[in-house]
Nucleic acid binder design. Structure first.
Lengths: 214, 214
DNA sequence: CAGGTGACTTGACACTGTCAAGTTAGTGTG
DNA sequence: CACACTAACTTGACAGTGTCAAGTCACCTG
């Protein structure tokens, strides 16, 4: 049964009456930069409406193509989600670096700043931050994703490097810090804890951190 | 266009040839205990196939009713998810209590045991543990959910109570411990950290925990 | 200029959540 | 005990979604 076309369909196909204006040229079939446009569309939809608002068809519509166009660039919805999350990790890394570089140049101040960057990103990009750990929804073996998440981890690992690992093994401090700050961000997002009553700045001193001697 | 019935449809409607056997009585229309059956179906589907395997229609099918039957008991899929997660929190609380009660009766041993219970549950029930913090997918204001999650939090808060809050405020220790263990569980689930290389038991001593004096 | 292929579009199908209308079984009252 | 009402379902439909197949168009190469 043929269905009635929606306005969106008409807009998409250029069927709106009147000639093409300079600001609305006839849309070529070959987009030219569709992969990037789809990822940016996904990032925007996630920010605007949360996880439930992010669908393959909405990304395609936002990018101005048909629902099947993404299939040439991504391995299904999961493939597109993976690219979106990789982009999110890049922004995340950038936020932590900006916070770190704005801090005093002592190991403790830099560590605190990186953690604050982490929490600021998680607070300002809640749906993206949540999606980053939904391993059912992404291809976590994807090289671009791996590179982007490793870069984020590296910023935190470098901030932890000056501190004594003690008996916890070579990665003890970074696992401790990453667990703490990711857990705090999750509980804050879920509303389980009151971040005004118990700010992160108050619990970081509870760690037994000592600078390495040498 | 009428569609061909599936075997599942036939099974559901009792259209399979032959009389009802003793082990397969005629199914009454009034289930009697459908709410509980749907939640249990959801818990099982989550355990078997992860988050993507949990749908309203599959829960209904597993419980032996039509796709619209859950609507009488739950406010849509979100309502059912909320009840499933509340059940998960109850099992979670039970797991932490069992670990705590099996430990030596010192504050430190009990705290370690509660954390180990937390991580054991998160490891053995990965999809449920993840779903507990997906606040987009549940009604977090639901009273049964609130009660169940508060009970879980209470077990951890009680284990933290003997320790010095220091300058962090009255909830400093429990926020510290909850953040740490939830973050560690998330990173373990995501495969971001190697739990064999950096066991939780190695990072807990990095906390500056002291018993309260009185 | 012709052929091949990349990059799309169109259409279809199965699955999903939700809603509306209808049906059946259980309960309460006279 | 009979009847009426309502709870607890079933059936059917629709919109949205992901995915697949077939077809079309635009670009590139020989």
């Amino acid at each position: 049964m043929p269905r009635e076309r929606t306005l969106l369909d008409s807009v998409k196909r250029g069927a709106i009456t009147g000639p093409m204006t300079a600001s609305q040229p006839a849309k070529p079939r070959h987009h030219g930069n569709l992969k990037t446009a789809l990822v940016e569309a996904g990032v925007a939809l996630l920010a605007e409406g949360g996880h439930g608002a992010l669908t393959l068809r909405k990304c395609a519509a936002r990018a101005g193509v048909s629902h099947a166009a993404p299939a040439h660039h991504f391995n299904g919805l999961k493939g597109l989600m993976t690219a979106i999350v990789a982009q999110g990790f890049k922004l995340f890394t950038q936020t932590m670096i900006e916070h770190r570089d704005a801090a005093s140049n002592t190991p403790h101040a830099r560590l605190v700043a990186v953690c604050n960057g982490y929490l600021a990103f998680a607070q300002d990009n809640q749906a993206m931050a949540a999606l980053m750990y939904m391993t059912d929804e992404i291809f976590s073996c994807d090289p671009e994703f791996q590179t982007a998440s490793a870069a984020a981890y590296q910023v935190l690992a470098e901030a932890c490097a000056p501190f004594n690992t003690g008996s916890a093994g070579p990665k003890g401090v970074e696992v401790l810090i990453w667990s703490l700050v990711e857990g705090y961000a999750s509980l804050a997002r879920a509303g389980t804890i009151d971040t005004s009553e118990t700010p992160f700045a108050d619990i970081l001193p509870r760690l037994n951190l000592q600078l390495q001697k040498n």
